[in-house]
Design a protein around this nucleic acid. Structure first.
Ligand SMILES: [Mn+2]
Ligand SMILES: [Mn+2]
Ligand SMILES: [Zn+2]
Ligand SMILES: [Zn+2]
Lengths: 139, 139
DNA sequence: AGCTTAATGCAAATGCGTATCATATTCATC
DNA sequence: GATGAATATGATACGCATTTGCATTAAGCT
């Protein structure tokens, strides 16, 4: 309950109602909907009966990102998706049929990326890998 | 000269001046500037003395993409980048210092991606891999 | 050349995200 | 617990890349 409060304080953010609520929504999202757009979060807030402005949702999500509480993804959907940051890095697989987002992580690929950057005289700072897939049975 | 005309016809597109010009600009771009935004193409047109509307540039680029003549990339720069489609697939490395775009292709990563999708019961349809890097010497 | 249809250019409309600013809230201090 | 300075919020205006509506123009077939 006070867990969110502490997390916000640790991030150097004032404990406000919108921030607590947004954090709760992101943390309580089930695996299938871990990845939410600002609109998604906004709608969830409204359904919880909270009266928070969309501008605040955007602001808070950006603050959370800066604080390392959430991670922002730019899938090809045109709008940013956010998820509670995990301790370990992972990449994503998006099903073109259902839209579901599956997380995975492959050390081989991770390592190879570092090598490739190095071979070109660069240092790997970040990367974005998204697999677009379809159920094997589908036609 | 008539090469562009044929390419447009093959794509099922009417041969118009804007389309020819845009195709020429993309095809004649040197390796360092293969990847252009709609604005980039628009500016290049103006400098060639052509009077083409920006809306037309956007429309034509989208048509070229549909026809498989160009490939669209959504790097984290905020705007789409286009390049003449090559026969072989490749991925990109974007230098965060200079903005330069380097192409690479790694069969190991390509194969691993296919495996990962399969292991999750999916078929790999497409993927997007972008490495964000910095010159190794930079601080 | 004439005609039908698609393409173009301009301007207005979108849509996601950010900036502004007056008001409300937090929280350190009394 | 009240007070007040600093910060956060919400409504709205704005910015920017891209799209769309529509009157005009150009392509291409006869
Ligand atoms: Mn994730
Ligand atoms: Mn390329
Ligand atoms: Zn990764
Ligand atoms: Zn690839």
């Amino acid at each position: 309950m006070a867990a969110e409060n502490q997390e916000l304080r640790n991030a150097g953010l004032k404990v406000t109602l919108p921030r607590i609520k947004i954090l709760q929504i992101l943390e309580s999202a089930d695996p299938g909907s871990r990845h939410m757009s600002a609109e998604d979060v906004y709608r969830a807030l409204l359904q919880s009966g909270e009266d928070v402005g969309l501008a605040t949702v955007y602001r808070v999500l950006t603050q959370f990102e800066t604080a390392g509480i959430v991670t922002r993804h730019n899938f090809e959907t045109g709008h940013s998706m956010f998820e509670i940051a995990k301790d370990d890095h992972h990449d994503h697989m998006v099903c073109l049929s259902s839209g579901e987002v599956i997380e995975f992580s492959d050390s081989l690929i991770e390592e190879r990326q570092r090598q490739i950057a190095q071979e070109h005289g660069f240092e790997l700072i970040d990367h974005s890998l998204v697999l677009y897939v379809r159920k094997s049975s589908d036609d």
